[in-house]
Design a binder for these strands. Sequence first.
DNA 1: TCTGGGGTCCTAGGACCC
DNA 2: TCTGGGGTCCTAGGACCC
Length: 344
Amino acid sequence: MSSFVLHVDLDEFIAAVEVQRHPELAGKPVVVGGDGDPAKRGVVSTASYEARRFGIRSGMPLRTAAKRCPEAVFLPVDEARYGEVSDDVMGLLRRFPAIVEVAGWDEAYLAVKTDEPEAMGAEVQRVVREGTGLWCSVGVGDNKLRSKIASGFAKPRGVFTLTRANWNEIMGGLPVDALWGIGSKTARKLAELGVRTVEQLAATDEGILAGRFGPNIGPWLRRLATGEDRSMVTGRPREPRGKGRERTFQQDLTDPAEVHGELNRLARELERELASDGPRIARVVVKVRFAPFDTITRGMRVQPPADWKGREAIENFAARCLEQFDLRRPVRLLGVRVEFERSE
DNA sequence: TCTGGGGTCCTAGGACCC
DNA sequence: TCTGGGGTCCTAGGACCC
C-alpha cells in the first residue's frame, strides 16, 4: 500500500449550513457576512454558488455584494453553529484509518495508506454527506500541498488527484497565484521578475528569489512551484501563539476618551475568552486603524510573563500601549492581542 | 470594491554587546 | 576625533490564509 494525503474541503460550508436550517433558501443567492445587514461595514464570509454567479466573493464588502445582487439573502455569521457542525464533520473523518489534521472549520488533511485513494475519497464524501447532509470535495495528493490544490480542482462535489506524475501537466501553465501561499502581492513582485507561470517559477534561480523575498521565502517559493512539500500531517493540535480581539466601528471614533473606553471593553472581552489555565502572556499588542485605512501596532513585553490571575493586567497593559498613539485622527478599528510565552 | 475578524509566519532594521 | 564586524534579541509591519 502507498501513502497519500487526502484534503477534505466542505463545499460552500457556511452558506450550506445556513441553507440546511433555512431550507426555503435552497437554490437562492445566499450571502453570509457581518451581522447580516449589507448597509453596514463588513465583508462576505461565504457566498452560495448561486450568489457567486453574480460575482460575489469571500472578502468582498457587503455593500458591494448588495449592489451586485440586490435580491440576495443576507445572513449574519453564526460562529457557534459552524463550530458545532465542523466538530461533527471532524468526528466522522476520525473514524477513518488515518491521521487527521484539522486545518480550519471546513477543511482537514487525512494521511492514509491505501492503493485506492480515489475510492477512499469518494467514501469520505459519502460518509460526510450521510452523516451531516453536507457535500465536500476531496483532493488526493502525494503530499499536503498537492492534496490542498487538488481539492480546489475537485470542487464541487468531486475527487481530484494531483501527484508528481501529473503536476507539470496540470499546474505548469497556470499563474503563480494558483499556488497556496502566493497571493496578489507576491504574484505582482514575481511578475516584475518576468515570472508569471508555475513552470517559470519552478525554473527560477533560488538566489534571485532569495534576493527579492528573503533567505527562507525565496527558496520556498521555488519549491512550491515544483509541488514539493515535506511537511507532515499531524494529529496533535498546535499550541496557539496568541489570541486577539478586534472591532471595526460603524462610525469612526473621534473622541479619545471613547477610544480608551472601547479598548478597555475589548481587553475585558479578551480576558473573558482566555482559559484560566492557559499559557502565560509574554506580550500585549494594541492595533489602531486610523481612517481611512492606516494601521499601526504598538506593543510591550510583559516582564515577567503573566498568568491569568492578574486579569485586569491586560487592560492596564493595553492602556499603556495606547499611550504611544496620537489619537487626534479618527479611529476606524481597535484591537488587542496577547502573545503567549513560547515553551520551545 | 472604501476594504471583517481570527489567526500564522517571516523579514527588516534598530539596540545592544563584544 | 566620524568610526569595523559579527551575533542576538526585539519590535513593527507585511503577506497570506480561512
